Amino acid sequence: SKNWSEDDLQLLIKAVNLFPAGTNSRWEVIANYMNIHSSSGVKRTAKDVIGKA
């Protein structure tokens, strides 16, 4: 699996709070948010995000 930096983990926590349970396509939305805002340049999929959340 791809390494997660501390910044990416913080971003994931922020995204999970921004897009609560019940959000349509929640994990796709979170992955997309991370891909836009992450400084690491690593592209995450919904599966990556679910695996780490």
Rank of each mutant, 00 (worst) to 15 (best):
L18D: 06
L12D: 00
D7N: 10
G41C: 10
K47S: 14
F19G: 00
I13D: 15
K43G: 06
A46N: 04
V29R: 14
K52F: 06
N35T: 06
D7M: 14
G51R: 13
S5K: 11
F19T: 05
K14T: 11
K47L: 11
L12W: 09
L12A: 03
A15V: 04
W4C: 02
I50V: 14
I30T: 00
E6D: 09
P20S: 05
S5M: 04
D8F: 03
A53H: 07
H37Y: 12
Q10H: 07
K52C: 13
S1R: 03
L12T: 01
K2I: 15
L11Y: 04
N3W: 04
N3V: 07
S40M: 04
A15Y: 03
N35I: 01
Q10L: 10
A21V: 10
I50G: 10
V16T: 15
N3G: 05
V49K: 00
T23H: 09
K2N: 15
K2C: 07
I13S: 15
V29D: 15
E6K: 03
L9I: 13
L9C: 12
Q10D: 08
S39F: 05
R26N: 02
A46T: 10
A21I: 09
G22C: 14
G41E: 09
N17R: 13
L18T: 12
N32C: 04
V49M: 08
W27R: 02
I50T: 07
G41M: 13
N32S: 14
A15I: 00
A21Y: 07
A31T: 14
E28C: 04
S1H: 06
N35V: 02
D8W: 00
A46Q: 11
I30F: 03
E28D: 11
E28G: 05
A53G: 10
I30K: 01
L12R: 02
K47P: 10
N3I: 14
N24V: 12
V29S: 14
A46G: 07
I50F: 12
E6S: 15
L11K: 02
T23I: 08
S5F: 03
M34K: 00
W4A: 03
N17Q: 09
Y33E: 02
W27S: 05
P20D: 10
K43C: 12
E28Q: 14
N24Q: 10
S25W: 08
G51M: 10
I13L: 15
R44S: 05
G22S: 14
N32R: 11
I50R: 15
A46K: 11
L18C: 08
V29A: 15
W27I: 06
M34E: 02
D7F: 06
S1E: 07
A21Q: 14
N35Y: 02
R26G: 02
V16H: 07
A21P: 11
K43I: 09
P20M: 00
S40V: 05
F19C: 04
W4V: 01
A31G: 03
N35E: 04
M34Q: 03
D8K: 05
D8P: 00
S1Y: 05
P20N: 06
G41Q: 11
N35C: 03
A46S: 11
L12Y: 09
G22T: 12
N17A: 11
L18V: 10
K52H: 10
E28F: 05
I50N: 07
A53R: 04
I30Y: 01
S40L: 06
G41N: 10
V29E: 10
I36H: 10
V29N: 09
P20Y: 01
N32L: 06
S25R: 14
L12H: 04
S5A: 02
I50Q: 13
S38H: 04
D48L: 01
V16D: 05
S40H: 10
L11C: 05
K14V: 08
N17M: 08
E6H: 03
M34P: 04
A53N: 04
I50Y: 13
V49A: 08
Q10C: 04
I13G: 15
G22V: 07
N17W: 06
K52D: 03
D8M: 01
T23G: 07
A15L: 03
D48C: 05
N17K: 12
N17V: 09
V49R: 01
R26S: 01
K14C: 07
A53F: 03
